[in-house]
Amino acid sequence: MNKVYFIGAGPGDPDLITVKGKKIVEKADVVIYAGSLVNKKIIDCRKESSELYNSAHMDLNEILDLIKKSVESGKLVARVHTGDPSIYGAIREQIDPLEDMGIACEVIPGVSSFVASAAAMNKEFTLPDVSQTVICTRLEGRTPVPEKENLESLASHRASMAIFLSVHMIDNVVERLLVHYDELTPVAVVQKATWEDQKIVRGTLKDISEKVKRANITKTAQILVGGFLGNKYEKSKLYDKTFTHEYRRGK
């Protein structure tokens, strides 16, 4: 019996799906993709005879039934998610029942939008004396967030932050971050990172909300927060000529 491949299609640029993920899409008999987010160009490589389904129009049971019938018919299934499916991908609720049915599942990781957003600005989340921690989170909406993970609590660490699925609540995001971050803390909002119509808005907690509204960004965006977006940092020890490690002796 064939297995189901859960594929991270990357942030949007068709070239950013992994080679392994693309090879599966190319040979799959059935392709089920998250049509509300996945760039359609990414799955243009599928074979002409494959069946294509947009999961944006399907509920969980419909998706599971389709996968079950396809696998039982000996078909190879590619379940294509945006970014990396391990982050806000809702894959456990698909994988667990499929494995209970005896259907093997394999996850192929992808490039998440939060790292694609940093790349779009040539930034590094983990500058040595600025932050060595990256927090990925979201505001509660129709999907709740555990109380111990509320934004104010996470902001108390003043780490580098990537806030998903929350740009439509930018005022609320800013208000809650200001509990711990200074109003001049750098912020960037990246909409549709790596897509042809990518948009980047830079500012601080003091002015980012107004800038985002002027840019008419209401969805499909990352909010990046922290000193890593600034220009003050110490160089790492990694390439310091006086630093000795396993492969190089300091001078």
Rank of each mutant, 00 (worst) to 15 (best):
L224Q: 08
K211Q: 14
S166W: 12
G83W: 02
F114P: 09
M169E: 13
K199C: 14
P186M: 08
I91H: 01
L127D: 13
V145D: 02
V189K: 00
T133Y: 00
N122S: 14
V201G: 02
I103A: 01
T220A: 12
A188C: 14
P186F: 05
S153E: 10
V201M: 06
D182K: 07
T143H: 05
A116D: 12
D96H: 01
G226Y: 03
L184V: 14
E175C: 07
T204W: 03
T194F: 04
H168F: 11
K219Q: 14
E149G: 05
V187T: 11
M101R: 06
P85Q: 03
G226R: 00
A188H: 06
E152H: 04
K211F: 09
Q198D: 13
T185W: 02
M101I: 07
R176F: 06
T137C: 11
V225W: 04
R158E: 15
N122R: 09
I163C: 04
N216H: 11
K148M: 07
L205P: 12
A215Y: 07
E147Y: 03
V189A: 02
V115I: 15
S86N: 09
E140M: 05
I103C: 01
L151V: 13
D129C: 10
G83F: 03
G227V: 12
L205F: 11
Q198Y: 06
A120I: 10
V130K: 03
E106H: 05
K123E: 15
I200W: 05
G89I: 01
H157C: 12
L184C: 11
E210R: 07
